[in-house]
Structures are given as C-alpha cells and as structure tokens.
C-alpha cells in the first residue's frame, strides 16, 4: 500500500504542477513510513516541503495554498497528532465553500497513517475516522490495499474539496497486489463489493478487510453460507445504495470496525440500513468493534482489537439468529 500511494503521488505531481506535498520529515527523509519516497529527489524542496513541527501550521498553510489555487497534499505524521489541526479542518476546510457561496474552496488532501497493531507508542494506534466524517463538508476515504490506495489517492488529489485520506498502517506492507499501468480514478463515495453472496452481508473498511475475509473463509469452510463482503472505501460520503441493495438481498448484516463500538461509522451504517432496508432484515444488524476504552499501550493493545475470531463469532451469531 505504501507503494500504491507513493505511485499516485508521483503520477499526480508529474501530471499537475499545482500539486505539492508537505509535512514533517516527508522530504529528505521520505516520510517515516517512506510513503513519500523519491518525491524530494525528483521534484525538489519547493514542491516537497519539510515543514516545521506544527500540525496546525501544516494544515493552516495548506488551506492558504489551496485557497490560492494550489493542490497541497499535507501529511500528519500520525493521525494521533492530527487533532492539533482540527481547528482548520472544522473551521475552514469544511466550510470555505459554503462561507463564500462557492467563490472560494479548499481542494486539499490531508493524509494520515492510522490504526493499531504495529506495536507503537501511545497516540499511534487509534481509529477516529468517525470524528472526521462527522464534519459536513469533509470527505473521508480509507483504502484497503495497494490498488485501491493508488486509485483513491489519485481521486482525492483531483477532488475539488478537502479529502481526509486515512491510511491503515497495519496494511502498509501487509500484502502485494499488481496495479495497472495507467492511473485509475476511483469514484469517491462508492463502496466495493469484494465478494458476492446471498445470506449475509459483512461491511468493513481499512485493515479490518483482511481479517474479515479470513473470518469469512473460515465460516464458509465449516458451513454452507453465502457471504457478501463490502469494502466501504469511502466513509463520507457513504455508499448507502450499495449497502441497501446488498442487505435487501441477504437480510442479514454484520458491520466490522476497528474503532471503539459507540458513536462510530458502524452506527452510521446501521442507521442507513434502518432507513433503507429495515423491513428486509431477518436479524438485528451485528456490530463487531473495539471497546469503548482508551487504547491500551501496545503490550495489551492486540487483545482489544477485533480479531478474526471475534468477526467469525459475530457472523455466526447473526447467521443463526
């Protein structure tokens, strides 16, 4: 996935001189995860900016650049530090277009690695996508693999509004996947049906997709069950149509999220099922999630994230209801 995002950054910077990359250690050091590898060498320090250590400054100046016609791709070194920039996200990115009736807008991408499972320090493991998605005027996308990461990043850079691009760092180097020669452009707001099925819909995103697929094949190995898997890809806007179509067909659904259980994206998915497919349900929609706790330090962290076994159990419960 690191390479997929990196490829999109190279292609977009090549294509459009208005695109630039900025953040802490993104230039000479090529990013702490090497997502910006090769960019500084190729495009130089005016287009690949090693910024001072200030998240609010990074997003605030990116807003200014975007208002003046550039297309900054700003990095938060870890999502856990992005909250220092929330003021600009809520106060300006989300509302400049509305504030000026379209005269001004903020077309920028705010990239950030997020999520757990890499034995990192405090503030390096959370999944707070719902927090960003709650802001009207902000799009939030999450890739799950190298190919869709590249296509989503390309789309995010070309999008006329602010896109928060959250990178599940557990999947950064998790697996290989071929990407096509030519850049692909993903439709932001469209989910992907990863596998089709007729008895149960499992909806997830980010690093949870791999775990979900594992759980699905375990369940399918043990019993006849036709499972449909949806990779959300875009948290906001959310692809209600694809969700509704699937749940109307299967009548059963489980939502899997890495984030804490309450007030999250899963809750929103369930609300939309309620709006569009309630009468088709044969079981309450299940939720497999983390707990409503402060993410424990990494010695205990793994214990608290939803694992394959939790997902398997959640699926069985909903199937047997």
């Amino acid at each position: 996935m690191v390479q997929g995002i990196n490829l999109a950054l190279h292609e977009e910077m090549q294509r459009d001189p208005k695109v630039l990359v900025m953040g802490q250690d993104v230039g000479v050091n090529e990013g702490v995860f090497r997502v910006t590898a090769g960019l500084h060498a190729k495009f130089g320090e005016t287009r690949v900016i090693d910024t001072p250590l200030a998240e609010s400054g990074i997003l605030g100046t990116a807003v200014g650049m975007a208002l003046a016609g550039l297309r900054p791709v700003a990095e938060m070194q870890f999502s856990g530090f992005s909250y220092l920039a929330l003021g600009h996200l809520e106060g300006h990115c989300s509302r400049y277009r509305a504030r000026t009736h379209g005269a001004l807008s903020v077309p920028l991408v705010l990239r950030m690695p997020y999520g757990g499972g890499v034995r990192a320090l405090e503030h390096h493991s959370e999944s707070r996508e719902a927090m960003f998605a709650h802001l009207p005027g902000i799009k939030v996308v999450i890739p799950s693999g190298p190919r869709n990461a590249r296509a989503l990043m390309t789309a995010a850079i070309q999008d006329p509004d602010t896109v928060v691009f959250m990178e599940p760092k557990h999947s950064y180097r998790a697996f290989r996947e071929d990407v096509p020669e030519e850049p692909e452009l993903m439709d932001i707001g469209k989910a992907h049906v990863v596998q089709e099925g007729s008895e149960l819909t499992v909806i997830t995103w980010g690093a949870m997709l791999r775990k979900t697929l594992e759980a699905v094949s375990e369940v399918q190995a043990k019993r006849e069950a036709s499972v449909e898997v949806i990779d959300l890809l875009s948290i906001s806007p959310m692809d209600t149509k694809t969700i509704a179509k699937s749940v109307r067909k299967t009548g059963r659904c489980v939502v899997v999220q890495e984030a804490p259980r309450s007030f999250g994206t899963a809750s929103e998915v369930i609300a939309r099922i309620n709006d569009t497919a309630l009468m088709y349900l044969e079981a309450p929609v299940g939720r497999v999630a983390s707990f409503d706790i402060v993410t424990p330090y990494f010695a205990r962290e793994q214990n608290y994230f939803p694992g394959v076994e939790d997902i398997r159990r959640g699926m069985i419960k909903t199937l047997d209801y």
Binding site: Q24, D25, G27, V28, N29, V32, D50, T51, P52, L53
Partner: peptide, 11 residues
Amino acid sequence: WAISTPQEKQT
C-alpha cells in the same frame, strides 16, 4: 534535530 528536521528548517 527533530527527527530529520535541522534547526534551519525548524525556525
């Protein structure tokens, strides 16, 4: 140093 950032890029 602040990771890879030297003083002249910091201030």
